[in-house]
């Protein structure tokens, strides 16, 4: 028995060494793609979801520029505003993704305020559904852990939030070194994300908008402290989502958010489903400057002008009023 165990352990040791070498190679330049192909994980690195998508926004928020207004939000916000950045030099447009959750939006806002002492306004554009996003096992790790752990900004979150994330994702997998390994290696990413989906359970706050209450509340507190105006507005939506929005309205009405932003649900502008490709985002073929500017005017024209003394559509898009 001892001889058998000894020989088996010896072979396992060699096997482990081979696997570690392969794993390290899978994070390294020339071997990254071939090993990803061999393990069927090429889509996990080629599609660049998560960290690579969000990291530029964190860097942009932290970057020194002359902007004083921040536009934050989900992917619909990104579709509407980010492409207009050149036309609005005074505004930093970092619409990102709902998957970063309100906690991620808080980190972006905090990073921006720290780097921009003259900030006057923060605009948060989010769909009702985006307010409910939490630390899930589909995209949560790539969007809420990877980019913020790699940039060292995850520490901005409350300790109990970090604890909740550790319960979902596992404490060792929040360590920046491990996060970077999973981010770089296709096989590691595939293995970890699939295990996560199979064996972990998402964080489900009670009430459902507790995370939004907490972190939009934190943005608000920060803004109040610094004399910054905070605005929360819904993104445009599509007819097929109307029922779901109505269902979420009930959750919203018992949240803190409804106290601070009572008109949020009244402001939602619905567009025909034909103008969307997935019921959430605008059809890619339609998203041309003229169309987008029309949507912005229809949805936000009045209050963008009304709410801020220094911001107007004319400031945002001078070309529109030429």
């Amino acid at each position: 028995m001892k001889a058998f165990i000894k020989r088996t352990l010896f072979l396992l040791l060699i096997l482990t060494t081979v696997l570690i070498i392969l794993d390290l190679l899978s994070m390294t330049g020339p071997f990254r793609t071939p090993i990803a192909k061999l393990t069927g994980s090429e889509s996990y690195i080629s599609e660049n979801v998560g960290a690579d998508e969000i990291r530029p926004f964190i860097e942009k928020a932290a970057g020194a520029d002359k902007t004083t207004v921040l536009f934050l939000g989900d992917s619909v916000c990104r579709q509407l505003f980010n492409r207009q950045q050149e036309n609005a030099p005074g505004i930093s447009m970092i619409g990102s993704n709902a998957a970063i959750t309100p906690a991620g939006q808080y980190i972006l806002a905090k990073t921006y305020i720290d780097a921009h002492p003259d900030t006057s306004d923060i605009f948060l554009f989010m769909r009702p559904d985006s307010l409910t996003k939490t630390f899930d096992t589909d995209y949560g790790y790539q969007y809420t852990v990877m980019p913020f752990a790699e940039t060292g900004t995850i520490g901005e979150l409350d300790p109990d939030t970090i604890e909740a994330m550790e319960k979902v994702y596992g404490k060792p997998f929040m360590n920046p070194v491990i996060v970077r390994m999973i981010d770089r290696s296709g096989p590691d990413r595939k293995l970890y994300l699939n295990l996560l989906k199979e064996y972990s359970t998402p964080y489900e706050p009670d009430p459902p908008l507790a995370l939004a209450d907490r972190y939009i509340g934190k943005i608000k507190a920060l803004c109040d402290e610094k004399g910054i105006r905070l605005h929360l507005h819904p993104c445009p939506a599509f007819e097929s989502g109307r029922d779901e929005d109505e269902r979420l309205r009930a959750d919203y009405e018992i949240s803190e958010l409804s106290r601070w932003f009572p008109d949020y649900f009244e402001e939602i502008v619905y567009y025909p489903d034909e103008e969307s490709y997935d019921g959430v985002h605008f059809d890619r073929d339609l998203v041309k400057d003229e169309y987008i500017l029309r949507v912005i005017r229809e949805c936000y024209g009045s209050f963008l002008l009304a709410e801020s003394g220094r911001i107007s559509l004319a400031d945002l898009y001078p070309g529109l009023y030429r």
Partner: peptide, 22 residues
């Protein structure tokens, strides 16, 4: 013989990873 075992086990693990998530 041992090299073949290691090769087979490595192929097995990479193969399992290949199928995993499908």
């Amino acid at each position: 013989r041992r090299a073949l075992y290691i090769l087979a086990a490595t192929a097995l693990i990479t193969g399992a990873l290949y199928n995993y998530g499908t």
